[in-house]
Nucleic acid binder design. Sequence first.
DNA 1: CCTGGTATAAAAATATAAATTTTTGCCGGA
DNA 2: TCCGGCAAAAATTTATATTTTTATACCAGG
Lengths: 259, 259
Amino acid sequence: MSRRKAQQDDKEREGDRPPSLAMAAYRQLYRDITNGTLAPGRKLPVGELHATYGIGFSPMRDALNRLCAEGLVEKREQRGFFVADLNEDVFLQITNARLVLEETALRLSIAAGDVAWGESVILAFYHLSRAARDETSFVLTPEWSAAHREFHFALLAGCGNEWLLGFCRKLYEQSERYRARRRLLSTGLSPGTRSHLQVHEAIMKAALAHDADTASDLLVRHYKESFEIVMNADFELLDNPRRLVPRAASEPEGRRDAV
Amino acid sequence: MSRRKAQQDDKEREGDRPPSLAMAAYRQLYRDITNGTLAPGRKLPVGELHATYGIGFSPMRDALNRLCAEGLVEKREQRGFFVADLNEDVFLQITNARLVLEETALRLSIAAGDVAWGESVILAFYHLSRAARDETSFVLTPEWSAAHREFHFALLAGCGNEWLLGFCRKLYEQSERYRARRRLLSTGLSPGTRSHLQVHEAIMKAALAHDADTASDLLVRHYKESFEIVMNADFELLDNPRRLVPRAASEPEGRRDAV
DNA sequence: CCTGGTATAAAAATATAAATTTTTGCCGGA
DNA sequence: TCCGGCAAAAATTTATATTTTTATACCAGG
């Protein structure tokens, strides 16, 4: 009875409740994978996860299967689940895909976005500025990450294409895994600082002014810089400069692996 | 012993075996959803599927979860699985996203594709031509569908970006669901006929000649035509002509729901 | 004595069956 | 007609059983 009562109480805060253990497991794993607690390539034995998170086999399996189809987890038939591996080639592909999709979404947002869209961008920027740190620290707080995500997707949300947005989300969360590895390192630039914030302000202003060219130019540049930073931090600094696809995605010549 | 022997034999034809029931269920459901046997919006009670397909609860759940993350199935928390619904707005979004992504992938393919890529395109076209029917029939064979898919992805595969390709695949299979509804109808045009084949031949020739502009122009036109056909067949013919995003994805003005 | 392959045992994944909640449809009373 | 509770159905979860993989040990051949 007391059990039942508790459930009822839970129900009262509708909306963000995770009633199913499967969902709880999913969120836990999602967090631990995207923030790097569960290292890339690591095996995920259901039994071990069961012991660690205190959740049964079936719900855990549910969660793993979902993560799997989202690309955060890999499933090897009859031999279990693994955290999806990371390497610089994949990161390059993800970044390139992201450049194309986000620029498209941004341009469509600027062209089609309504008043509510503009307001949500302004609000998101406000949240981001509140979460920004004073200059020199290298630790990225969860709050800043959430605000950063909110801002970028507020920008894109006006495009009105759920599929496009869904793809952008997937690419974003993949990128986060790479960024997460950077948290412990202290390399050159400084995401989350007030100076970094100004880049976002510039993007916002261009977007709200319906200047699609400037806005997407700034956005693409922003991502390319992030890419370089993460690349230099996570992997050894390579001698050949990384090539990213040009904005229009129509280059005369190109290497096969350039994308 | 004989048991073990059989296993060993199985192992020899590696690669396409579906050892797990979950995978078998997944494939069955995938087929039945994409070809329309399981109608959009329909509920998928695990118990009923269990009875129909003769596969247990857990594997079925596994399969449903995967389909779910792929967008073919929707999961309503604590109240079961449903075949993802179809409607014209979503179809418009899918088509628009597809236009952008496939054009990008095609241009990258043409820019970066190597000899092996060109050969696989030629081979795929050969298969498509073999599967083409004589003019007037309206029935689409599974063979033609497979060949059609093979051709289009042979074109895109040269881009070398697995993520981009993965998104294209997802959009393609979604589109197939709409096309599937058309099989029983007999509307104007005629996919799978020899005249329809010529469109693909033109695309191939342009691609192999490294004429990216012509190739993507033809491809986009091809998809827009398909869109109109399916739209007119499946839903009532609307008075306002559908607006699709222009190729460059940068239109001066636009409705919010236009994409 | 070392190497290579095979059988065996432990571990882990997959599948089944049963139990527990949660939802849903229905009926009676206000 | 509307509300509340009861019962059936269905989803979720646990517990159990069955395969499959993986690691270890053993034995024949070099």
